[in-house]
Design a protein around this nucleic acid. Sequence first.
DNA 1: TCGTTGTTGTATCA
DNA 2: TGATACAACAACGA
Length: 389
Amino acid sequence: MSNLKNGGRPPLTYQSFVNIAGEPPEPVVEEYSVIPLIGDTGEYELFPVPKLEELGYGDISQEDVPLFRGGETEALKRMRESLQDKEWVAKFEKPKGDPSAFLKPATTVLSPYLKFGCLSSRYFYHCIQDVYMSSKMHTKPPVSLTGQLLWRDFFYTVSFGTPNFDHMKGNKICKQIPWKESEELFVAWRDGRTGYPWIDAIMIQLRRWGWMHHLARHSVACFLTRGDLFIHWEKGRDVFERLLIDSDWAINNGNWLWLSCSSFFYQYHRIYSPISFGKKYDPNGDYIRHFIPALKHMPREYIYEPWTAPLSVQEKARCIIGRDYPKPVVDHAAASKECRDRMGEAYASSRLGGGDPAIKGKKASNSRQRKVSEYAPDPSKSKQPKKSR
DNA sequence: TCGTTGTTGTATCA
DNA sequence: TGATACAACAACGA
């Protein structure tokens, strides 16, 4: 990589794009008046594809095998495999998928390919339509498979027309909520050490695979923000942006606004239980056992709440809570009650006009069913942040 | 002002 | 598996 003639700039390395904190630097923008011919690299020399070690990854041979081979060929193969099961396509309903299914995920897992442009969303849409044409009945948006593509475009549209979409402050559609500061709780969440196996397994899957089921994302996002820890959604957003292989600026920010009840969705008393939500799908805890080996031998009746297991059971399972696996960082019943109360106060304050002082005279409003024209860009406003990812 | 609606809550009961 | 109660939000439309 060092043989790059780069106009005197330092050579571009992985670390140039993503520093340790995960913050991408300002992208270098080149302007061309004419599209260069294929093969004409101008003053640049070709350099080989960097090795994983050069990208900062160590020995990954012992890791779980990543699910995602890159490229259009793989994307089309995956799409065709998914669409082959016509009944599954016709009956697809997003909220009904199983978030604990990891050997055979409950969704198409095409999001990384859509994100990187390996799969055309338009082509995908028409392929789904072809399946619908040959089916007697099919589900409809917003829950259907095409509905998922429409949500994607919804977030693109609203993010394009909303200044400061990726921040709470200065974002007129975002509830102003006095989130708590706690580095200790945040780090426990980020690193999968909350003591709630369902939450930790999801965060570990995120770190290992770069992907987890949509409802699993809901569980951990709710837990971090309005459900338990009351930590700012922007902190969780940053972690997802860094670790998700399908992370998309508009969709990621939109979903964090949604899940934290900061925008789009406001029923903050509906809180995902870090215990019973996962149990509903996977009562034996196979998903937890796979991603948290320390809990592999924990009996089924304690797998979601291992701190309630008698010491003799913990010893037999070779997992002492507090030593081999963390104690819960918060008590869910008390924490969620407190979160509800805080959200209620924040909402009451916003009703009384106490919002973001940066947005003078504009109520932080719901945008759920605003006219599409309201999302059109205002040329007088500053440019939307451009992400280089 | 009021009734309805909202992609994905939980616990309990039959 | 589906119905119901729970507690209760914002926004829309009549």
